[in-house]
Design a protein around this nucleic acid. Structure first.
Length: 807
RNA sequence: GGGCCCGUCGUCUAGCCCGGCUAGGACGCCGCCCUGACGCGGCGGAGGUCCGGGGUUCGAAUCCCCGCGGGCCCA
């Protein structure tokens, strides 16, 4: 085969290889889910095309590619699809911003809604293109599927899962209090609520006790909810208010009387120790009203304005209403005190608008009934690292309400449902086709329940929560819609790679839904990665302005160098910190590999007449041991340990010791037999090949480049073989001893200011276990004589059992 | 306020479950040196209160308790 001629690894070589890979069709591996046995399906996270990737996401996808390539090396066929998650709010919000439009206004007519969807789709296309460019540049061999989560194919599947669940009674419609984002005009699941610290004001408001006429003072951050006040509470242990038991408080401004109750929820140290319970200030209120059976009065409307019940505040936005009521109370002398406080406010995780709790009719998926099942299913999956499984278990146990799955938005999968306006009967289509009820006629001519005519049947206009779409990605990948039997088999060969931040959402919902739909676990393996941090160790956020983008580094150091960083930045599951220095190390490593190959390929590879010396066997056995360890780690979906082990093998053991030691032999300076010269060259090629194979998942470019010279063809087609793992009867520990010995001799020469090639006039005594490498050591270090044993007297002790006697 | 996880040189980490040699390695830093594959490296050095405190023990980074700090989740 050819010789490697280059001296330095350069990112430009990667660009040439990328074209080659494209021509050779390396991006798609044909996997027959029904007939093949040894395959793995990767449930690649479909990224949200809402902007360019930072180094953290880039690293995440690079790792997915490493895992895929590693599994191929181990002999599996691997299906790694890539498609985009194109549903949901962020894209809508981005489009609203980019084109200065308001979705709710445009969507008043079907034509307007259609036009809005086109704009969102266009924006998504542009962003998706940028993402594809990056992963290609990173060397990821993903199978690019153009049909993302907004494709008719995907949406038909999402709708089919809904229809199935509806038929089984797993979905129901109900009017109940839900957490609602007034900005997005949609209800939110528990997983979609974030908490932010906010500076606010604590208002001390004077109430009157109906029975006694005395004044009591209640502290609240939300005086605008006075109209919704349903009770006043104090803590049962709080002696100050014992006498109020059973009496009533008159709500200022509104004048209605509410009961005063003793309740554990009141915190004596907060404000005055008296709290007003309103429908609804927060989730605690919700629980309280339900528990006490008090009729709620909802004073906030869907758009975030105050309702009729709020009287003088009617029509105002919540924040304005708070100002206004404070002024009114102040004017009437009912505001005793105001304090600046910092409190935690629940907000919509997407747009950060404070959440309100209001009554709306939504569709709910039953989840509280299946907690135990989900926990059991979770137990059946292999988590890497296992610590993160705890997060899923805890989340499942903490769930308190069913999952509201409908959203009043537009760029999403429509609920496939029509409702009879006359009798309320729900009409669902047959599964398999993507339907849009807001613009399509119902699949029946009249209501099957009451016989109402077709024009009395109304199409649902809402769409699904994006997690309802996203939680069936794995079913999409295994083609559950068309071949459910095959899909179920494929689930047992599926891997889920994802960050720990979306365990409570993506992983949980996927587990729940897959179990409900198939009765199976969604995955065999779950691989959890940490979060990307900037060089100072802070999480990277657009809002912090500390996001680092990969492109300039890919240009300067190349994709292999970048991948090297992403592999060694942290062990699996831990947060990983950006480090340009490590990227640079990656490039130097690539250069090292190229130069080893340059040296090795300067010799013709012998095909026969080979005689291996014990040193050669030791090197082969050592490399084989590393290969077994690396294979084992790859089997655990780990790339961190393999990279460090290979770095050590290639650099410290192979390049620094073995390669240097055989130079006297291959340059024919030392009178070794021809067959032994051939043995050294054979070993050089063999260890080089094995190293390339093992390292190719991590640094595919440089490995592929060299592989084509020494072996021909793409390294991506290489598989680890029995021969690779064979040790030729050598002892890996001998190699370790040799490395130690070399180090000791180098140190000794160094301390005397000798050149490393300078002759040592004396006799080196080695311990028995180094007997077999006497000749190699003698020529390598240029020592007059090397023998086994321990002399009576010696001049230096270089290491355990290593003595030097000068002549 | 509660639950869970984590805390080892500047950085990433090994060791912790199953207490025991001067807490090991890698990257980075400093000094010296080399170079017939490679300005690539080799050798040496600086750098660690193993988060703090207490306890158990002949002996604790490791086991127990109490704090502190960080993260995630829930109130």
């Amino acid at each position: 085969m050819g010789r490697v001629e280059i001296i330095r690894w350069r990112p430009e070589y990667e660009l040439e290889l990328l074209e080659l890979w494209e021509r050779e069709g390396l991006y798609r591996e044909e996997v027959d889910l029904a007939l093949d046995e040894d395959y793995v399906v990767i449930d690649t996270p479909p990224p949200y095309p809402s902007g360019p990737w930072g180094v953290a996401q880039a690293a995440h996808y690079a790792q997915i590619d490493m895992v895929a390539r590693a599994l191929r090396l181990l002999g599996y066929k691997v299906l790694v699809p890539f498609y985009a998650d194109r549903n949901g709010l962020p894209a809508e919000v981005a489009a609203e911003k980019a084109y200065s439009i308001v979705a709710h206004e445009m969507a008043r007519t079907p034509e307007g809604r259609e036009a809005f969807l086109k704009l969102v789709s266009k924006l998504l296309d542009e962003n998706e293109e940028a993402l594809v460019r990056v992963w290609k540049r990173l060397g990821c061999l993903f199978d690019y599927w153009r049909e993302g989560t907004d494709s008719p194919r995907y949406r038909a599947m999402t709708q089919a899962t809904f229809i199935e669940m509806w038929k089984r009674g797993l979905v129901y419609r109900d009017v109940k209090p839900v957490q609602w984002c007034p900005r997005c005009r949609t209800s939110l699941a528990e997983a979609e609520i974030d908490f932010v610290k906010e500076e606010g004001r604590l208002y001390y408001v004077k109430f009157r006790v109906l029975e006694t006429g005395e004044d009591i003072v209640i502290a609240t951050t939300r005086p605008e909810l006075l109209a919704a006040c349903g009770a006043v509470i104090y803590n049962p242990r709080d002696e100050r208010y014992k006498h109020l038991e059973g009496k009533h408080a008159v709500v200022p401004v509104y004048g209605h009387a509410v009961p005063i109750l003793a309740h554990e929820m009141a915190r004596p140290e907060y404000g005055t120790g008296l709290a007003m319970m309103c429908s609804y200030g927060d989730v605690r209120d919700l629980i309280f009203f339900k528990e006490q059976g008090i009729q709620p009065r909802v004073v906030v409307e869907k758009g975030g304005t105050m309702s009729e019940l709020a009287g003088p505040l009617r029509g105002l936005r919540v924040a304005e209403a708070r100002q206004r009521i404070a002024e009114m109370l102040r004017g009437e002398g009912l505001l005793v005190k105001e304090e600046e406080v910092v409190h935690e406010v629940p907000v919509c995780w997407r747009c950060k608008t404070p959440v309100e709790i209001i009554h709306v009719e939504e569709y709910f998926l039953r989840q509280l009934d299946f907690k135990d099942d989900v926990l059991r299913v979770a137990d059946s999956m292999e988590f890497y690292p296992v610590e993160h499984k705890e997060k899923l278990d805890l989340w499942v146990r903490s769930l308190a309400m069913d999952w509201p799955i409908s959203r009043t938005r537009y760029y999403g999968t429509e609920l496939p449902i029509w409702t009879c306006a006359r009798c309320g009967h729900a009409i669902l289509p047959e599964p398999g086709r993507y339907v849009r009820p807001w613009k399509e006629l119902p699949p029946v001519d009249s209501c099957p329940s009451c016989g109402a005519p077709r024009d009395a049947i109304v199409g649902e206009s809402r769409v699904f929560d994006t997690w309802f779409d996203s939680s069936v990605t794995v079913l999409y990948v295994v083609n559950w819609l068309e071949k459910p039997d095959v899909a179920i088999k494929a689930l047992s060969k599926a891997v889920r790679p994802q960050g720990y931040d979306i365990i409570r959402t993506w992983l949980y919902y996927t587990t729940l839904r897959t179990w409900l739909l198939t009765g199976r676990a969604p995955f065999r393996w779950v691989r959890i990665t940490g979060m990307g941090l900037d060089e100072k160790g802070r999480a990277m956020h657009k809002s912090l302005g500390n996001v680092i983008y990969p492109e300039p580094y890919l240009e300067r150091y190349g994709a292999d160098a970048f991948r090297f960083w992403s592999a060694v930045a942290s062990k699996l599951g831990s947060d990983y910190r950006w480090s340009e220095a490590t990227v640079r190390s990656g490039l130097l490593f690539a250069t090292k590999i190229v130069n080893i190959a340059r040296f090795v390929t300067s010799f013709e590879e012998p095909r026969s007449g080979i005689s291996l010396r014990p040193l050669d066997r030791a090197m082969i056995a050592y490399a084989a041991r590393v290969a077994r360890e690396v294979a084992e780690a790859y089997g655990r979906l780990d790339v961190y340990e393999p990279t460090l082990k290979l770095y050590h093998l290639v650099w410290d053991v192979f390049a620094s010791s073995y390669v240097e030691m055989v130079k006297p032999r291959v340059y024919r300076r030392a009178g070794f037999k021809d067959a032994e010269v051939a043995g050294a060259v054979h070993t050089l090629y063999r260890v080089l090949r094995l190293s390339l194979k093992l390292l190719s998942p991590i640094m595919p470019f440089v490995c592929d480049y060299v592989w084509r010279s020494v072996e021909g063809g793409p390294v991506a087609r290489g598989r680890l073989t029995e021969e690779d793992l064979g040790d030729e009867g050598g002892d890996p520990r001998l190699m370790e001893r040799v490395v130690e010995l070399n180090s000791a001799v180098w140190k000794w020469k160094k301390e005397r200011g000798m050149r490393l090639s300078e002759r040592i006039e004396g006799v080196l005594y080695l311990p028995e276990e180094l007997r077999d490498v006497i000749e190699d050591v003698k020529h390598f270090h240029n020592i007059r004589e090397v023998v086994v044993g321990k002399p009576e007297t010696w001049d230096f002790e270089m290491g355990p059992g290593v003595h030097l006697k000068l002549s």
